[in-house]
């Protein structure tokens, strides 16, 4: 079963994508819920709000322990929370990805956009759709982090160990590629489909 952190943001869109992949899904609202799942999505939303809500119930510590063995996918605000350094001290980082990020780095909503990106994975190049909404930019990448995709020469998909971080939203444009990769292919969660 895959969990989606459901404190704030577009968690219902991630639930839809996981259901399209025939995965069982749990909306995660309490640290105890983590014991029931095999992987976690940290969705998009407002990173300041999600970080605040996480702090109020001590979610950070629980997710850090969970992350040692289980995969986490973060999109946009989720990637910001998973990073090590954030250009805004109101967002408390989980430090799961050795990267530094700037929030809202493309500008305001008028600069939000959709586009196709190329992802290199297992020696193949995949074309996927992506929605960048008030998106962050990754400005520093540690040596143990793999960059799987660049957009305009800037990293937009990064992988460290079994975790994956995206600066954009695949879930808004029905892109199942990343959820499929991290929760089905990588960990061979068996499924009848």
């Amino acid at each position: 079963m895959v969990g989606v952190l459901a404190l704030q943001g577009d968690y219902s869109k991630h639930v839809q994508i996981l259901e399209m992949l025939n995965l069982e899904v749990l909306e995660v609202r309490y640290p105890n819920d983590l014991s029931l799942i095999d992987g976690l999505v940290i969705p998009g939303g407002e990173s300041t709000t999600i970080s605040d809500l996480m702090t109020r119930v001590s979610f950070h510590e629980a997710i850090k322990i969970f992350a040692k063995k289980k995969p986490i996918l973060g999109t946009c605000a989720g990637l910001i929370l998973m990073s090590k350094n954030i250009s805004d001290d109101r967002v408390i980082p989980l430090g799961l990805l050795d990267i530094s990020v700037d929030r809202n780095a493309y500008g305001r909503q008028v600069d939000s956009f959709t586009d196709q990106i190329k992802v290199s994975l297992n020696d193949n190049i995949h074309n996927v759709s992506a929605a960048f909404i008030r998106a962050p930019k990754i400005n520093k990448v540690g040596s143990n982090v793999k960059i799987l995709s660049y957009y305009n020469n800037e990293p937009v998909v990064v992988k460290q160990g079994h975790h994956l971080g995206l600066t954009f939203h695949p879930e808004l444009v029905k892109t199942t590629f990343f959820h499929n990769y991290i929760f089905r292919k990588q960990f061979e969660i068996n499924n009848a489909a």
Binding site: D10, K13, G45, S112, T114, A131, I133
Partner: peptide, 17 residues
């Protein structure tokens, strides 16, 4: 930029808030 999809996208981000 400015498509209906990207407009609704921001509304999605505000959910649960």
């Amino acid at each position: 930029k400015g498509s209906f999809e990207i407009k609704v996208g921001l509304a999605e981000m505000l959910k649960g808030g």
